[in-house]
Amino acid sequence: MLDDRARMEAAKKEKVEQILAEFQLQEEDLKKVMRRMQKEMDRGLRLETHEEASVKMLPTYVRSTPEGSEVGDFLSLDLGGTNFRVMLVKVGEGEEGQWSVKTKHQMYSIPEDAMTGTAEMLFDYISECISDFLDKHQMKHKKLPLGFTFSFPVRHEDIDKGILLNWTKGFKASGAEGNNVVGLLRDAIKRRGDFEMDVVAMVNDTVATMISCYYEDHQCEVGMIVGTGCNACYMEEMQNVELVEGDEGRMCVNTEWGAFGDSGELDEFLLEYDRLVDESSANPGQQLYEKLIGGKYMGELVRLVLLRLVDENLLFHGEASEQLRTRGAFETRFVSQVESDTGDRKQIYNILSTLGLRPSTTDCDIVRRACESVSTRAAHMCSAGLAGVINRMRESRSEDVMRITVGVDGSVYKLHPSFKERFHASVRRLTPSCEITFIESEEGSGRGAALVSAVACKKACMLGQ
């Protein structure tokens, strides 16, 4: 009897593995994704193909990295998701002549009506938060230079001027797309009239992360975010950046690689679950690469896999709870928690219980395998993109072996128990001629924006502006 049951459990697990095998990517698959990513990057950089390229390769006008001589107080704003952060950054000489960066910050959550109302409502709310922060720190009387981390696709015309191309991540505030974001912020500050600010720089969160990590390690020339969304930036040779005049030196390019796949480059790798996630998203047909990796989508992918296993009578005796059938019910943090389970399955059992399920031991094991399959594919897909960037940098610099540091931020990278190990191992397999160091950014977005502002202020002083 026991043997029969054991055989049935083994057969069930084997069927589960057959279904989950769809998520496995072979090294040849990853090399294919990497080569296609490089081709799209090239198209994004070139003037004649930029418009139709899915990977936009947006110039950021960040050319210099901090040298350690900029000092002063800077205000930093960070808008990239449902939370908005205001930070005071003091850049100065530390002990023994070292450079020191001290920060104080406060988080504000953005109400739904500000995210989806008008641009005026959104930026009025942001300036209200700045006003509140300055009151708390008794700094209303000071006109501070301000660095703005704005983590949406922007076409820069200068370091302090950028046109919002399109909202992502659930934002829909009308009247912002096609307009200068810094102008919208300046107008809102003017409307309030109770404080003055000098907006000197606007950067993407990947750029802010790279600059913040450069402060720790001067070989950091790539910034990457794996959180709600997924994106990367890197220092490109100016001669390859056709959208900006000049051939000397390097400029940081914001790849906006989340949109890779929007022209069909990933079609052969998309599964039924991916198509369902895409169809029910706020932007169907867009940001397809990001939807395979980002935390906004990972939990939902797992939920759809679990429903398939229920329908195949391989999980929960073929019956799903009402909660499990509800879109968004299986949160991405559950994926991390399930994979963090120590082996007694308590954590998995508790999560499934909150979803109205009474799982068996085998159910718990199957749910864990589903989570591992989805998150491992995410790590491997992400590795193909980064390997594409790094191999490109090595080739354009004609280096036999390139040493490089990548600064990384984002909740999936930082909080998932195995993502970074799987990701690092896969990147290294795909970049055999590179020695890569990964560092995690601390308060990256805010500190990085302030350091970019410090560079901009120093330049302005040198130019006598």
Score class of each variant (00 low, 15 high):
A6W: 09
R7L: 13
M8Y: 15
M8D: 14
A10M: 15
A11Y: 14
A11F: 12
K13Q: 13
K15T: 10
V16D: 01
E17F: 15
L20Y: 14
F23Y: 07
L25W: 08
Q26Y: 11
Q26F: 04
Q26S: 11
K32L: 05
M34G: 04
M37W: 04
Q38R: 07
Q38A: 07
K39L: 08
E40A: 05
E40C: 09
D42A: 08
D42L: 13
R43W: 04
G44L: 00
G44W: 00
R46D: 12
H50S: 05
S54G: 13
S54M: 15
V55G: 01
K56I: 02
P59T: 04
T60I: 00
Y61H: 02
V62F: 02
V62K: 00
R63W: 00
R63I: 00
S64H: 14
T65F: 07
P66W: 05
E67V: 06
G68H: 05
S69E: 14
E70L: 09
G72L: 00
D73E: 01
F74N: 01
L75F: 01
L75A: 00
D78F: 12
D78V: 07
L79K: 08
L79T: 03
T82W: 08
N83W: 07
L88P: 00
L88G: 03
L88Y: 10
V89C: 07
V89Y: 04
K90V: 03
K90N: 03
V91K: 02
G97Y: 08
Q98L: 04
W99A: 06
W99E: 04
W99R: 09
W99G: 06
S100G: 05
V101W: 08
H105W: 15
M107Y: 13
S109T: 12
I110A: 12
I110H: 06
P111N: 05
D113N: 09
D113W: 15
A114G: 09
M115F: 09
M115S: 10
M115N: 08
M115C: 13
T116K: 11
T118K: 12
A119C: 06
L122E: 04
D124F: 04
I126E: 06
S127W: 05
C129I: 03
I130C: 11
I130E: 08
D132W: 03
D132L: 05
D132G: 03
K136W: 06
K136T: 08
H137I: 11
Q138H: 09
Q138Y: 10
M139W: 07
M139R: 04
K142D: 09
K142A: 15
P145S: 06
P145C: 11
L146C: 14
F150M: 13
S151C: 13
P153A: 07
V154I: 12
D158E: 10
D158S: 10
I159R: 12
I159Q: 14
D160A: 13
K161T: 09
L164K: 15
L165M: 09
N166K: 09
W167K: 13
F171Q: 12
F171R: 13
K172I: 05
A173F: 09
S174I: 09
G178C: 14
R186K: 07
A188V: 01
I189T: 01
I189Q: 15
I189Y: 04
K190L: 15
R192S: 02
V199C: 05
M202P: 05
N204W: 02
N204T: 06
A208T: 14
A208D: 00
A208F: 09
A208C: 03
M210V: 02
M210Y: 10
I211A: 00
I211F: 00
S212I: 03
C213G: 03
C213W: 02
H218E: 09
Q219G: 15
Q219C: 15
C220A: 08
C220M: 01
E221S: 08
V222L: 03
V222Y: 00
V222M: 00
G223K: 00
I225G: 02
V226Q: 05
G227W: 01
T228D: 02
G229R: 12
C230Y: 07
N231V: 05
N231I: 02
A232E: 04
A232W: 02
A232M: 02
M235S: 08
M235C: 00
E236T: 05
E237T: 01
E237W: 02
N240V: 09
E242T: 07
E245H: 07
D247N: 01
D247W: 03
D247A: 01
D247V: 01
E248I: 06
G249F: 05
C252M: 08
V253A: 01
W257A: 03
A259M: 08
F260Y: 03
F260I: 04
F260N: 00
G261W: 05
D262T: 11
D262I: 10
D262S: 11
S263D: 10
E265S: 03
E265C: 03
L266V: 07
F269K: 05
F269I: 02
L271K: 05
L271S: 04
E272R: 02
L276D: 11
S281E: 07
A282T: 15
N283W: 14
N283K: 13
P284Q: 14
Q286M: 12
L288A: 14
L288G: 13
Y289F: 15
Y289L: 15
Y289E: 05
E290D: 12
K291M: 11
L292D: 07
L292I: 15
I293C: 14
I293K: 06
G295W: 14
G299T: 05
L301K: 11
V302C: 05
R303V: 01
R303D: 01
R303K: 03
L304H: 10
V305M: 00
L306R: 00
L307V: 08
L309H: 07
L309Y: 03
L309T: 06
L309K: 01
V310Q: 14
N313L: 08
L314T: 06
F316P: 05
F316Y: 13
H317V: 12
G318A: 15
G318R: 11
E319F: 15
E319G: 14
A320R: 15
S321H: 14
E322L: 14
L324R: 00
L324H: 01
A329G: 15
A329F: 15
E331H: 15
E331D: 12
R333I: 13
V335C: 08
V335Y: 11
E339M: 01
S340T: 04
T342K: 01
G343M: 01
G343V: 03
G343I: 01
G343F: 07
K346M: 07
Q347N: 04
Q347T: 08
S353D: 08
S353G: 07
S353L: 04
T354F: 13
L355C: 04
G356K: 09
L357F: 05
R358A: 06
S360H: 01
T361K: 03
T361Q: 15
D363S: 04
D365V: 03
D365H: 06
D365S: 05
I366Q: 07
R368I: 02
R368F: 08
A370T: 08
A370P: 00
A370S: 04
S373M: 10
T376P: 00
A379Q: 04
H380I: 11
H380L: 12
S383C: 06
A384W: 05
G385D: 01
L386T: 14
G388V: 06
V389H: 05
V389S: 02
I390G: 01
I390W: 01
M393S: 14
M393R: 12
R394Y: 10
E395R: 10
S398V: 02
M402T: 11
I404T: 13
G407C: 08
G407F: 02
D409E: 08
D409K: 06
G410C: 06
G410P: 10
Y413L: 11
K414E: 09
K414L: 14
L415E: 14
H416L: 15
S418V: 11
F419L: 05
E421I: 14
S426G: 10
T431Q: 11
T431C: 09
P432Y: 08
P432G: 14
P432F: 08
S433V: 08
S433E: 10
I436V: 10
I439L: 11
E440C: 12
E443F: 07
S445G: 12
S445W: 13
S445T: 10
G448Y: 11
A450L: 14
V455W: 09
A456E: 07
C457I: 14
K458F: 15
K459A: 11
M462L: 13
M462A: 10
L463D: 14
L463C: 11
G464E: 13
G464Y: 12
